[in-house]
């Protein structure tokens, strides 16, 4: 080992300053290009930011994986959900004719849409995979109308940065950035495998987001709120999941 030299000290100092300056520059760039997720603070914040920023840079504008019809799972797994509340039971008894999807927030025309209204916006189908954080997965055909069409109808204002979506299940809400919201695969799903979407799979209305883990595909969606300030919702972490230690961005 060489003793500490003046030259070595200077070299180390310059490297340290360059490192700190580089980090500061990276932080400013990330902020400017929207590469910091709502849960990008706290102990795990830097990790969340690194994942989100890398994935946004690497996987931008790549469509979700679609599968062939023969790969549709024979026995899809419906994850257990909380028992439906009374309001949900009443709506179910009426065949969900009175189900409404409220669209509000930073939109030009706040709306309240029935399932028939949603179907009237044009149905699309996709054969994509649900991949759960717990490890299980299945492939199904999903039929519905893209979220982007609903947002176009409502006239999303240009300052909008996130779309918050809420379930009829107590305390269940999520949000996505505008890139995911405008993805044609982000589907307000009403049908599954050529039938109506069954209640255990999120019927009558589930927001499917095939490029992220299953918990982002919230079941029983009844409200969509466009916003320019995600900090106003819940604890300001972008969804309820980061409050329990899950990632807001679940592209993983």
């Amino acid at each position: 080992m060489n003793p500490i030299t003046r030259r070595g000290l200077i070299r180390g100092g310059v490297a340290a300053v360059a490192g700190v300056a580089g980090l500061a520059a990276a932080d400013r760039l990330a902020k400017r290009y929207g590469l910091i997720p709502p849960d990008g603070r706290g102990i795990y914040g830097p990790g969340e930011t690194l994942t989100y920023a890398c994935q946004r840079l690497l996987t931008t504008r790549t469509p979700a994986r679609e599968f062939s019809r023969s790969m549709i799972s024979k026995n899809p797994f419906a994850n257990a959900v909380a028992p439906p509340n009374d309001a949900f039971k009443r709506l179910a008894a009426g065949g969900f004719r009175d189900w409404r999807l409220v669209v509000d927030g930073t939109v030009a025309h706040p709306m309240s849409l029935s399932l028939a209204d949603l179907k009237g916006l044009g149905l699309h189908s996709q054969i994509t995979e649900v991949a759960c954080e717990e490890g299980w997965s299945y492939i199904a055909e999903w039929i519905g109308t893209p979220l982007s069409g609903v947002l176009r109808e409502a006239g999303v204002l240009p300052q909008t940065r996130y779309i918050v979506y809420t379930s009829t299940e107590e305390g269940e809400w999520e949000s996505i950035d505008m890139q995911d919201a405008s993805d044609p695969h982000t589907l307000l799903t009403m049908g599954m495998n050529d039938g109506d979407l069954p209640v255990p799979f999120g019927g009558p209305l589930r927001l499917r987001l095939p490029r992220q883990l299953g918990y982002k595909s919230v079941k029983y969606v009844n409200r969509i709120t466009a916003t320019d300030n995600i900090k106003k919702f819940g604890k300001g972490l972008g969804s309820v999941d980061p409050e329990y230690g899950y990632s807001w961005y679940a592209g993983i």
Partner: peptide, 11 residues
Amino acid sequence: MSPSFTAAFPA
């Protein structure tokens, strides 16, 4: 496997 990464690089 990341659902987002495998979408970008299905191979």
